[in-house]
C-alpha cells in the first residue's frame, strides 16, 4: 500500500531550497514537485498565474498513464518526459520512484541545460526523500496530528 507521505519542517525547507536553486540554475519559469498521487509538495518561481493544484493532479495523471504505457511495452516506467510547446515547454522527471519533478521553461532556455540541472537536483531530492521515509517509518516518528482529534472536531467541520 506504500507509506503515507509525511513532511516535516527540516525536509520541507531543504526541498524548497533545492527547487528554488533549480529554478535559477536551469533558467526555468517554474519548478514543481508533485507526489505521484497528485499532491503538490513544492512550487518555486513564477507560480502566480498557474493553478498549482490542478497542475499537480494532472501531472500525476500523466505520469500514471505513461507508467501504464511503459509497462505495456515491457519498460518499468518512463523516468523522463519532455513536452514541447510553441513558447513554453515542460520537463518531468521521476525522483526516487515516489515524486515527480516538473520544470516549465521558455524557449529561450535550452533543454540541455534543463536536463543537466534537473539531474543534479533530482539526485539531491532523492536523498532527502529517502531520509524522510526513514524518519516517517522510525518508531520514534511524530505522532499523527489526528491521533488526538475528537469526533466533535470532525463533526464541527461539517456543522455549517
Amino acid at each position: 500500500m506504500g507509506t503515507q507521505l509525511v513532511m516535516y519542517d527540516e525536509e520541507y525547507n531543504r526541498i524548497n531550497a533545492v527547487c528554488d536553486r533549480l529554478t535559477k540554475d536551469a533558467n526555468a519559469k517554474v519548478v514543481f514537485l508533485v507526489d505521484k498521487n497528485g499532491q503538490l509538495i513544492s512550487a518555486s518561481g513564477q507560480t502566480q498565474n498557474i493553478d498549482t493544484t490542478s497542475l499537480a493532479s494532472l501531472t500525476a495523471g500523466n505520469v500514471a498513464a505513461m507508467g501504464g504505457l511503459a509497462k505495456l511495452i515491457g519498460e518499468n516506467e518512463f523516468p523522463n518526459q519532455i513536452h514541447e510547446g510553441a513558447r513554453e515547454s515542460l520537463y518531468m522527471t521521476i525522483v526516487g520512484s515516489r515524486v515527480v519533478l516538473v520544470v516549465i521553461f521558455e524557449s529561450s532556455t535550452s533543454l540541455g541545460l534543463v536536463r543537466l540541472r534537473v539531474k543534479k537536483a533530482s539526485d539531491e531530492l532523492a536523498k532527502i526523500f529517502e531520509a524522510l521515509l526513514k524518519k516517517t517509518e522510525s518508531p520514534g516518528g511524530m505522532a499523527s496530528p489526528f491521533a488526538e482529534i475528537s469526533d466533535d472536531d470532525i463533526d464541527n467541520l461539517f456543522s455549517e
Binding site: M1, G2, T3, Q4, L5, V6, M7, Y8, D9, Y12, N13, D35, N37, G38, Q39, I41, M142, S144, P145, F146
Partner: peptide, 15 residues
Amino acid sequence: MSFINYSSREINCKI
C-alpha cells in the same frame, strides 16, 4: 494515501 505536511500545516486526502 493522505499527505500530512507539518511545515505548512496541511493535510490532503484523496476520495
